[in-house]
């Protein structure tokens, strides 16, 4: 089934449910979510706090477990993977961009970007080439040996983006990527993400509160009380962008 950009889906979510237990209470977070994300899409997930958008992102990224339903990414049903397999799958298929960058403070920009490549079979020289390319892409070739504390927030987030793309994963997940940045830096980060989609055909799934960030996305989906809706507030049809 075609989608907004006419490409086949890379993420297929079917009847996904997730709830948390607090004491004896069960609090539903996501209820029977079904939708697809096309390859090369830039999707923004919006919604009030506690709406379950971060939980949905975590499930797609394979760091949380669903109660029911399936998530297929690039044809692989990740809900059936063991914890060990899931870790290996994440290393190969998911790039993470966090609100607070989550760089290792004791590692240099180069070493931070190199981390995901340590989980691949690449040689030392190949790793260096990839890391240099990624840092060049985010415009930080001159900050290779800097530690995170020596970089501005915007620069740190760009290092984090380099780390997310360096192993060429199938999807990039971003949780409030501009949430900790000033307007100018946030604008630069969004521009960079937009470039990744346009020039490098990356698929980005982004959770955000920031309407300016959502504007950059090609599709916006809203989550409210665990139910997915289209931009106009109507319950979403199973196929996005229709």
């Amino acid at each position: 089934m075609g989608m907004g950009n006419g490409k086949p889906p890379i993420v297929e979510i079917a009847h996904l449910s997730k709830s948390y237990r607090r004491g004896s209470q069960t609090i539903p977070v996501l209820e029977d979510i079904t939708f697809d994300i096309a390859d090369g899409e830039f999707l923004a997930l919006m919604g009030p706090s506690g709406s379950g958008k971060s939980t949905l992102l975590n499930l797609i990224a394979g760091i949380d477990k669903a109660d029911e339903g399936t998530i297929r990414v690039g044809g692989v049903d990740i809900t059936s993977l063991s914890e060990r397999e899931l870790a290996a799958w994440r290393a190969a298929n998911v790039g993470f961009i966090f609100q607070f960058y989550n760089l290792m403070p004791v590692l240099t920009a180069f070493e931070n970007v190199e981390l995901p490549l340590l989980l691949t079979g690449l040689s030392r020289n190949e790793r260096r080439e990839h890391v240099e390319l990624a840092l060049q892409l985010v415009g930080l070739s001159d900050r290779v040996d800097h530690y995170p504390a020596q970089l501005s927030g915007g620069q740190q987030q760009r290092v984090a983006i380099a780390r997310a793309v360096v192993s060429d994963p199938a999807i990039l997940v971003a949780d409030e990527p501009t949430g900790d940045l000033d307007r100018v830096s946030a604008g630069e980060i969004l521009q960079l993400m937009d470039r990744l989609v346009r020039e490098f055909d990356k698929t980005i799934i982004m959770v955000t509160h920031d309407p300016r960030a959502a504007e950059k996305a090609r599709i916006i989906r809203h989550l409210e009380k665990g139910i997915l809706t289209d931009s106009d507030g109507q319950p979403a049809s199973p196929v996005a962008g229709s």
């Binding site: 060990r84 994440r90 290393a91 998911v94 607070f100 989980l119």
Partner: peptide, 14 residues
Amino acid sequence: VVEIGTLRALGFQK
């Protein structure tokens, strides 16, 4: 804790 969570998310095994 956050570093550990990040490393695990990046795909490093337990």
